[in-house]
Simulated assay, not measured.
Amino acid sequence: MTDLTDKVAIVTGASRGIGKAIALLLAMQGAKVVAVARTAEELEELTLKTQGLAIPADVADEADAEFIVAETLSRFGRLDILVCNAGVGSFNLLENFEAAEWDRIFDVNVKGTFLLCKAMVPHLKAQGHGHIVGIASDVSKRTFEHGTVYGASKYAQDALLGSLRKEVRPYGVKVSTIYPGMVDTYFNESKPGSTEAEKTHLKPSDVAQAVRYVLEAPAHVVVDELMLHPLTQEW
């Protein structure tokens, strides 16, 4: 299994929920975690636990994305892992969406993934190794009522990561995509455990374990897709 000790991992959307669970687990496995989110206060609390680096930033801003990579290299001198976890969602009938809401969802879910990958990929290709993990959604593979905008963003993110996988594989860089079902977290302004239904959902720690699984897979193993099922909690 691949050893994560002293590997440098950037995790976006790390202040709470899935991102926080991923950051904590990678730190427990010995990685140096660069936690990225827009909320500085929650990031500071996290980095006290991980002894890593906190960078308050907007992943949809190109200057911020470039700063995240530059600051990581300045602090640790290397880059190994990028976990594109930051995501937002809203659900409604198509005709009830405002164009601004479309922009917000695509900015975080798609543009954010694009900008971080764009800033990081040249370094990974030059060093001949590295791993990008995208936290997509099971709606990357299906459609549902009220999911027009969010689903479209996740289909786009999935296509971006799938194409990137083929581009960087010859350079020794891996790209993995994880497709969680319903997760008991803060997504879409909900609170963990706030309803009986949410108590049957996946936990953020389940997704974190999936990330650990793909990161620790031997170099000769390619895991193209990892789907987490919300009811059975198996993958």
Rank of each mutant, 00 (worst) to 15 (best):
S205P: 00
E71L: 11
T72S: 12
F67A: 13
M1H: 00
E167L: 06
L48I: 04
A100Y: 14
I22G: 10
A219I: 06
H129L: 05
L116N: 15
A21I: 07
E145K: 15
A60S: 14
R104S: 05
P122E: 09
G147W: 13
K203M: 04
G128T: 11
S137H: 11
T50P: 11
T12C: 01
V173S: 01
A21R: 05
R75E: 15
G17L: 06
V8P: 02
R165N: 08
T143G: 14
L226H: 06
R75D: 12
L82K: 10
A37G: 08
D3H: 02
A9Q: 01
V183M: 03
S15T: 05
D6F: 00
L215K: 04
K32L: 12
A86K: 14
K49N: 09
V8S: 01
K49P: 07
D6V: 00
D103T: 15
K111W: 13
V36R: 03
F187T: 02
A152D: 02
P170V: 01
V175C: 00
D6A: 00
F114K: 13
I132G: 06
K203N: 04
E225S: 04
L43I: 06
S15A: 14
R169F: 00
T232S: 09
V175D: 03
T12R: 02
V183C: 07
K191N: 01
G19Y: 09
C84A: 15
G30K: 08
L82H: 11
V33A: 06
L161K: 10
S176H: 09
K191P: 07
G151L: 10
K154E: 06
A60L: 07
A219P: 00
A70D: 12
A21F: 02
G181N: 09
A63R: 14
V121T: 09
Y150S: 08
S15N: 05
Q209N: 11
T2D: 00
N188R: 10
T185G: 00
G181V: 04
L160S: 02
T185N: 06
V11I: 02
V221A: 04
G52F: 13
Q233D: 07
D184H: 10
A136K: 09
L116R: 13
R165V: 06
S140K: 10
L24G: 03
L53T: 10
A100G: 15
V69Y: 04
V175T: 01
A126C: 03
Y213V: 01
K7R: 08
G134I: 11
E95F: 14
L115M: 07
H220W: 04
V34I: 10
N188I: 11
I178H: 02
L46A: 10
A219D: 08
V108T: 15
L228V: 06
A100F: 14
V108P: 10
A159E: 12
M182N: 12
L116E: 08
L202V: 06
K174R: 11
A159D: 07
V121N: 04
N92C: 13
G13Y: 02
T200N: 12
D80A: 07
K125Q: 15
K32W: 10
V11D: 02
M1C: 00
S190W: 06
A119E: 12
